[in-house]
Amino acid sequence: MKKITLPLTDEVIRELHAGDSVLLTGTVITGRDAAHKRLYELLEKGEPLPVNIQGEVIYYVGPAPAKPGHAVGPAGPTSSYRMDKYTPALLDRGLKGMIGKGARSEAVVESMKKNGVVYFAAIGGAAALISRSIKKAEILAYEDLGTEAIYRFTVEDFPAIVAIDSYGESVLVTS
């Protein structure tokens, strides 16, 4: 089990290999379908993003509401492929890591190799367990999207597996 401190450096990314189990500590930003669509449309128009994604790790998640006394509700990964259309543009703008579940497109893997990016898989369906490693959640942008808003999560020993590394190697079994 590798302990990784965020933000990721290029050196750390180079040392991560498909199949490595990791515990992530630091901060990540969140975003899923609706937020990706908005970020992508801004990039297409050449307008500034509401969040600086340079060097960040993005977690594809739409958390459940937090019960009183909890930092966040259950917050497991959502399927990553739905973000594939938007991903290469975000990687070109400096996003260094992604956390989700399931397979990615060839275009995403090529962009990951080009930009030196790592894709982590969290365990789909382990949302209650995963939420224990999220210590703080604050909204950064798109509050109107509710669960789909962009949050900043402070995580401690967040469990994940390197699903696709920056060399394009994958541990996921696909058809």
Binding site: G62, P74, G76
Partner: peptide
């Protein structure tokens, strides 16, 4: 135990 959802996608 905590009566929270099994998965965030309810």
């Amino acid at each position: 135990e905590e009566e929270i959802p099994i998965c965030q996608d309810t």
